[in-house]
Nucleic acid binder design. Sequence first.
DNA 1: ATTGATAACGCAAACGTTTTCGTGTTGAAA
DNA 2: TTTCAACACGAAAACGTTTGCGTTATCAAT
Lengths: 346, 346
Amino acid sequence: MKRKITLKQIARELDVSVSTVSKALKDSDEISDDTKQKIQAFAKLYNYKPNNIALSLKNRKTKTIGVIIPEIVHYFFSKVIQGIENIALKHGYNVIIGVSNESFDNEVINIETLANGSIDGFILSLSKETLQKQDYHHLNETISQGMPVVLFDRVIDAIVCDKVIIDDINGAKEAIELLISKGCKRIAIITTEDYISVGRLRLEGYLRALNENEIESNDDLILKVDDRYESEDRLDLLDTAIERLLVNNPGIDGVLAVNELYAVSAMRVARKLGCKIPDEIQVIGFTNGVLSRHATPGLTTVAQNAQKIGEKAADLLIKRLETEQEEESYETSVIDTRLVIRESTK
Amino acid sequence: MKRKITLKQIARELDVSVSTVSKALKDSDEISDDTKQKIQAFAKLYNYKPNNIALSLKNRKTKTIGVIIPEIVHYFFSKVIQGIENIALKHGYNVIIGVSNESFDNEVINIETLANGSIDGFILSLSKETLQKQDYHHLNETISQGMPVVLFDRVIDAIVCDKVIIDDINGAKEAIELLISKGCKRIAIITTEDYISVGRLRLEGYLRALNENEIESNDDLILKVDDRYESEDRLDLLDTAIERLLVNNPGIDGVLAVNELYAVSAMRVARKLGCKIPDEIQVIGFTNGVLSRHATPGLTTVAQNAQKIGEKAADLLIKRLETEQEEESYETSVIDTRLVIRESTK
DNA sequence: ATTGATAACGCAAACGTTTTCGTGTTGAAA
DNA sequence: TTTCAACACGAAAACGTTTGCGTTATCAAT
């Protein structure tokens, strides 16, 4: 086993100084051609590569981006990571992933362990628990220590930094408008509790669309799902809640769900209740993921361009990292949504 | 903005030496109680945290695990990462992710940039292109440099290291046995090309099960899907291939697919051809992911315990990292599969 | 008064780089 | 022969830690 070789070892072996080796490998013209060739050949032979850690310490930058997401087994988030990876790789950055599992404590721990020199900046989406507690001191502290942060998807005004979001209001509004144009009169929405911004905003879009089309909104048609129903072993509770919605409110002919899971669950429940999709009920979801694509019938969805979100977030972060000046003007980038029509709408 | 504080700054501020600060913060009894309290209080006030990079350089270990996967937007791989993250966090390790996108070159680049001191060890699954080229020099080199490596899922004998796999042969065999016990007489398999080990092994299990049950195998019933059909915009080609399989071989009453995508595609095509599932054709897939759970009908699958694979891989790696001695005996851990019965089988 | 122990701290090296600033050697010009 | 560039290289500091060892000062014991 031949361990990695260092400048010092090369220097000793070739009987020159460490600085000579360093310069020779950088092709400095301080060093004679003879010596350079000798050193370069030797380095190549032993496959010398500079030690990243030493470089990081010296340069005070790690060329590494920290990404903290609530959940990794999730089409949207993994697609965002893919976007981040793309851009990062292109600029010579590595990506280190932390998963908060929707827990505030995990988020804090992840941030704290990464913020001590391991990374140059953060890209993150807040955990549900953090949103609920409305405690952002950990983020504001790392930001005030000069660590650049880019927030995406689940963002919050109280944190001042670059942000990447989608136009949730408009995405939902367009979806509802599609349903209306397809003849829906009684449209329900399956959303999250209000503290999750995307749920709140999509509900807002739903209400606006109804309002603009002079359809009276009805609280009975608004189902705010308890988070806890989202875990894999609580699907029955989600189904029950949806079933209650459909049974208690006969005549529902359109459903907007704020994520894939809610949407396919709605379709499953509707089918169970004997409703034809899209003939009797039309369904639209959010996130054009694998579920939407392979559901039966195929699910019409509001595509979020998750990959683009990741790319934009990485762009913003890297731009801030590479331009030293501390611009105190932060950018919020809005990524457009796109309706993908499939068979769950007419 | 208050930047992170260092030992040196504390030392200067309190008019002591750096080493005194360091020792005081470690509660060394070389330092008087007075000084310790003063220093500790000051450090706490300024929220001192040791710089990870400096520690890494000094200790020659980074407490970071490098994970390289072929694809991140993928239930199986993201679930494996979740398992790795769990264990890593528990042992104070960070996880840095590289995505090869099934490309040999990307795999090499990822490994090389991470191997230069950024990480203590690798966990990885080989890219398809690497498997095809059968070129493993990059891995064998990093291993020979003393970098611990754990391979999972797509493993290869030519690389000598710890490995974590599932019992593909047996998993497939049990699936086929289930189909046979449910009355299937003419069972097809939708698998990958042979160079992908999991496809090859599952085919092997299929053949063994047929053999043991004295059913003659038939090459016409073995569909080896071209990789390129797997991308999101090539789904029609996959469907066409499956359709050809079903149309050219009437009487197929059972299908084993080596992944979720192939399985739901098979169901979609079968339904399109007017076949009832599971009455006329029963289908079993691999990977108990979100597709299997939410397909209609629910897909019976061979669950791979992806999270357990990740946990085991992380365990193996960390064990090797923490026990310094260079044991030259490598372990191959086999994670058991589990049949999850749903409505796509009788 | 001398010795020796002990307490409390600082020095310096080490991890692997890069880079600034010498320094010694050569050769040519004066 | 002296002087001065130019050339080729080395020493050392710096990044932020940790740690073995050396160095004081104090005080008790002889």
